[in-house]
């Protein structure tokens, strides 16, 4: 139909090549920083005796979500240890936590800014749509080109996938703060910062925490995909199980992913509800 073809693939390839060759230093820097975070987190947790880490997680779960979930967490983690998946569990946990920390550090300010500026919001929306719907495998390859194999590109891929819900829900939460509340703050002579930190963020907190929760869940769903580029952890066990048709082994690793997901979900859900609904 057309006498020519729009060379999107060439553009993208050229752009990636350009970035890799010209901005390699920056990517190396990011890579080193992320590696530092995720590796220290992993080593720190592995340095503890499994029982101690299990007790710590159970205590946090108790505090945030009550004793029932806490018992579930303790039993689930003991099971992971029992079936020899403790190291994989810790690797996955540190990958997800590192990605989530980065998501929060970058996503919260962007979400707040999107709530304040309609212009920025209209720019960032299609970008977020793109990040969420573009098949993850497509950006695994550039991630590897930028950051090599291993945990770091895993963290980055997880980060890209988990960032949108936090930005979206932070934006939504702040926009949904009743107009009268911000008017009240203005009427009392609040500065913009006071209004943000004393009114908008606290009132939007349940919605923002729902965003944190959603992004952690999405991050966990990337675990297996990240394992394809050598991120290790539980994903690697699932992958190995699939590749060797060892259904049982794959199931075990999958089960531990589910246990981790439930614990993280209940903890972050608890964050959103505390204080705003006393009793």
């Amino acid at each position: 139909m057309f006498p020519f073809r729009i060379p999107i693939k060439d553009w993208i390839s050229d752009a990636v090549d350009f970035l890799v060759s010209e901005l390699g230093v920056i990517f190396d820097g990011i890579s080193a920083f992320v590696y530092f975070l995720v590796d220290n987190l992993k080593d720190g947790m592995l340095a503890l005796h499994p029982i101690i880490l299990i007790l710590l997680i159970a205590a946090l779960t108790w505090y945030m979500a009550g004793w029932k979930i806490s018992i579930f967490a303790a039993l689930g983690l003991l099971l992971a240890e029992n079936i020899g998946l403790w190291q994989a569990f810790v690797e996955t946990l540190s990958l997800v936590l590192t990605a989530e920390i980065l998501v929060m550090v970058i996503g919260l300010p962007l979400g707040i800014y999107a709530a304040k500026s309609d212009r920025f919001n209209s720019i960032i929306r299609p970008v977020l749509d793109f990040m969420q719907t573009m098949p993850a495998f497509v950006y695994l390859i550039p991630a590897v080109m930028f950051f090599g194999l291993g945990l770091v590109p895993g963290v980055v891929a997880t980060f890209v996938f988990a960032l949108p819900p936090l930005i979206r829900l932070t934006n939504l939460g702040i926009r949904q703060v009743p107009k009268e509340l911000t008017e009240a703050a203005d009427a009392f002579g609040a500065t913009n910062m006071q209004k943000l930190f004393k009114v908008q963020i606290p009132v939007a907190k349940p919605t923002i925490m729902a965003g944190v929760n959603q992004s952690i869940m999405l991050g966990l769903s990337m675990v297996v995909i990240a394992a394809m580029i050598g991120a290790g952890g539980l994903g690697a066990d699932v992958l190995r199980g699939i590749q060797r048709l060892q259904v049982g082994q794959g199931f075990e690793a999958g089960l531990v992913v589910v246990i981790l997901a439930i614990i993280l979900d209940r903890i972050t859900a608890g964050f959103g509800q505390r204080k705003s609904q006393p009793e």
Partner: peptide, 21 residues
């Protein structure tokens, strides 16, 4: 902002507009 702080007792709203947290 300074003027509001010195002269206005804020505002009282129909739906109270008090901070839930």
């Amino acid at each position: 902002r300074e003027f509001r702080r010195k002269n206005f007792c804020g505002m009282v709203f129909q739906n109270f507009a008090i901070l839930p947290h």
